[in-house]
């Protein structure tokens, strides 16, 4: 059965320009998001993984229209996504939950006001109904109605993140962008939030773009995984296949750096990387080379990678990889 595509991102780019030095008029470019293309299907959890600086948060802001794009297009159900178009009202359909629940709620407003504000603004409810509306939403995310008159500082981290999710759900969106929703929370609390998110998704209708750097969560929650590095997509794979055999060398490094207590022995720390090759963070020099941006750190690199950019190619099993020498099921 062909799934319905809810969001189509095609060739999306965001470049930041900066002056090399104050004496030099020439400007250099950082490609925060570079030529990114992917689809999100209906009722799917699409995970975006990568380390700091790989452009995953920029991607989420681009989808939300919080920053302007350099080039490329985003389509929502085949229609060009333009938040300025008042008639189509895309704001109601796509919502975001931010990483830090401590800074993304207005400290001066009571909880019921925070939750019902988006719905009032988009004319879903009248201002007089806001209390009942807030209570019903709070029940949805598993909070008791006692807290509606509280202020955000009176709540714990987990409760705040739930309020934040409730606020996003108030306009009943069909796509929710989750920008590291649990990384600021404790283990026991983050389990509560993940359960909540999975319950909401199983009720139907809603899709997630789940941005994270924790592969354990991805394994648990996601249907498909997208690995980003230096603003580019390295690999898109269905989650079970990805965790059986990560195809891109960078995915492999990420996979091998997960710490889990299901490992039987004490970790024999990294055999992949002598001299820490492959584990350094993203640096700015990467743009200068004509070849693969992961070339310098890759343990599988060969001469051809230095000169040519690897295209995104299909390696079967619905997997797309940007590498000349991907691991495949045959290699195992």
């Amino acid at each position: 059965m062909e799934k319905e595509i809810i969001l189509n991102v095609s060739n999306l780019s965001k470049y930041y320009k900066y002056y090399k030095s104050i004496f030099d008029i020439r400007r250099d470019v950082i490609k925060a998001v570079d030529n990114v293309t992917f689809n999100v299907f209906k009722n799917e959890i699409f995970a975006v993984v990568g380390e700091t600086g790989c452009g995953k948060s920029t991607l989420s802001k681009l989808i939300m229209g919080l920053i302007s794009k350099t080039s490329g297009d985003i389509y929502y159900y085949g229609e060009l996504l333009d938040y300025k178009d008042k008639k189509k009202d895309f704001r109601k359909k796509i919502q975001i939950v931010f990483q830090d629940p401590y800074s993304s709620l207005n400290p001066k407003k009571k909880i019921y006001k925070i939750i019902s504000y988006p719905a009032i603004k988009s004319n879903i409810i009248k201002k007089t109904d806001r209390l009942d509306f807030a209570v019903s939403l709070l029940k949805n995310v598993g909070l008791s109605e006692e807290i509606i008159y509280n202020y955000p500082h009176e709540l714990s981290g987990g409760q705040r993140q739930r309020v934040s999710i409730a606020r996003s759900l108030s306009v009943s969106p069909e796509l929710l962008v989750l920008d590291e929703p649990v990384s600021a929370l404790d283990m026991s609390i983050s389990a509560q939030i993940l359960n909540l998110l999975m319950d909401l998704q199983r009720q139907g209708k809603i899709s997630y773009i789940f941005i994270t750097h924790d592969l354990k969560l991805v394994r648990h929650i996601a249907d498909r995984v997208c690995v980003m590095y230096g603003g580019k997509i390295m690999e898109i794979s269905p989650s079970p296949d990805f965790f059986d055999a990560p195809a891109h060398p960078y995915s492999n490094v990420l996979y091998n750096s997960i710490l889990s207590y299901s490992f039987k022995k004490r970790l024999n720390f990294i055999n992949l990387n002598e001299n820490n090759k492959g584990l350094e963070g993203v640096n700015k020099e990467k743009e200068k080379t004509g070849g693969c941006i992961y070339f310098k750190k890759c343990y599988a690199s060969k001469e051809v990678c230095k000169e040519n950019k690897p295209p995104l190619k299909d390696i079967g099993h619905n997997r797309i990889v940007s590498c000349f020498f991907p691991f495949t099921h045959q290699d195992l």
Partner: peptide, 13 residues
């Protein structure tokens, strides 16, 4: 129990 595990017999989702 509250952390997702990576072992093979672990149920996803």
């Amino acid at each position: 129990k509250s952390v997702p595990s990576l072992s093979k017999d672990y149920m996803q989702g």
